Simulated assay, not measured.
Amino acid sequence: MIELQNIKLSFSSKTVLNDISETFHQGEVIGLVAPNGTGKSTLMNVMMNYVAPNSGKVIFENGLTYSSKANEVKIHQLISMMPDQSDLYNHLSGRDHLKIYCTMWKSDSKLIDTTIAALNMGHYVNKKAGTYSLGMRQRLCFAMQIVANTEIMLMDEVMNGLDPINVEIISNVLMEKKAEGKMIIIASHLLDNLEKYADRLFLFKDGKLMDVDDIVEGFSEPTMTTVRVKNMSSDVKVAFQTRYPTIALQTLVNDTTLLTLDKKDAETLGSMTAYLAELQVNDFTFGKVTLNDLYAMYYGEES
């Protein structure tokens, strides 16, 4: 468990973390979504005590906090942060790196071979890291955190530089760790993938965490509340809003217009689509608001 209690942090005159209070639990995958520079990585650094907040505190199981160096040592047996590629030693092999992390966190050495197999690293893991491609280095960084085997795992852009096959492989490992009761907090730009496996999703805006279910009611539920229209003309928008003044209409940067009901309403949904056909609009689909939609709405860009 991690409880963030009134975390505030400013650099010069810029507020980066603005009174954040939230609790995360074991067995959860938490997704943090926002453009670079909005505070996601800083929040993770606060959880690790790499950066001290101006006020507020991070609380772990049994009320453990970063109140002393002795407590920090105890906490860092519970929590780890995925290393960055710049942390790798080019003269050491991938297996050497895994042995180091296994030793540092006093975890089971059997995890080394099982992790190598799970991530399909066997053909290069004994070579020096300096010979690795970016994707191989990223897999090694992920593997290092997996063999540390901490109860809480923080991952910043874990899927960076990976092809779709390796994204799927890592996603499967994450699901296995979740089933073991690990808490995994991930900051990511791969929103389609993140939306598939995260239990809770948060946007970062003006230094605050916003639960997507508070932004869009029932976001996490598989209900069809949205009609997505491509290249909807201004005249059609005016006609539609005249007929349906209570329906939310928003056009995203990719020229997709979302027509969203407050809740599931099959009768209105059917009437809306019939009216679109009457207006000779045929390029539309049913669905729900997606994480990519929310990203475009809040940050004015596509992920």
Rank of each mutant, 00 (worst) to 15 (best):
S68E: 00
A148F: 03
R95D: 14
T256A: 08
A70R: 08
E195P: 12
M47I: 03
S41K: 00
G300N: 03
K208S: 15
N166Y: 14
S107A: 09
G218I: 04
L191D: 02
S67C: 00
G27V: 03
A52D: 08
M44I: 05
A277Q: 11
Y197L: 14
G218M: 08
F204R: 03
L174A: 07
K230T: 07
N71S: 10
V253A: 09
L162M: 10
Q250S: 13
I75Q: 00
K110F: 12
G218H: 11
M48S: 01
T260H: 11
A274Y: 09
K196A: 15
M44G: 00
G270N: 11
L111F: 11
V147A: 07
V229P: 06
Y299H: 09
I184H: 05
S13T: 13
T257N: 06
M104Q: 12
K182A: 05
V46Y: 02
A148K: 08
L261Q: 09
D283N: 09
V58F: 01
D108Y: 09
Y124L: 02
D235A: 15
D255R: 04
N149E: 06
K8N: 13
V16N: 02
I170A: 15
K196T: 15
V253Y: 04
L9Q: 02
N193K: 12
Q138H: 12
L249T: 15
E3G: 04
S12I: 04
L269A: 10
M183C: 11
D163C: 13
N36V: 00
Q85C: 05
A296L: 02
M210A: 13
K127D: 12
K205C: 06
T273H: 09
G135I: 14
E151A: 09
Q26S: 14
I75W: 00
D293A: 09
I247S: 15
E221H: 14
Q138Y: 13
Q241H: 10
T257H: 09
N166K: 11
N54F: 02
D108F: 08
S80L: 06
I152V: 02
I186L: 05
I59Y: 00
H189F: 05
D213R: 04
Y295A: 03
Q138V: 10
L190Q: 15
D213M: 04
M210N: 14
M175D: 08
L291F: 04
K99S: 14
Q85V: 13
G181C: 08
H91Y: 08
L258P: 06
F286N: 10
N231D: 15
G31N: 04
F204N: 02
N54L: 05
V16T: 02
V229T: 06
N18A: 03
L4W: 00
M136C: 09
H123M: 14
Y298L: 06
D283H: 07
L191M: 00
R137T: 13
M175R: 08
L279S: 14
T251Q: 11
A34W: 01
V167G: 14
M153T: 10
I186C: 04
D235F: 11
K196F: 03
N36F: 01
V33S: 04
Q250V: 15
L259M: 10
S80E: 07
L88R: 05
T38P: 01
K205G: 09
S41M: 00
M297E: 11
S271Q: 13
A187C: 01
M44D: 00
D156K: 03
I30Q: 05
S109R: 13
N90G: 07
M1C: 00
M81W: 00
D192R: 12
E267D: 11
F142A: 09
P83M: 10
M82Y: 07
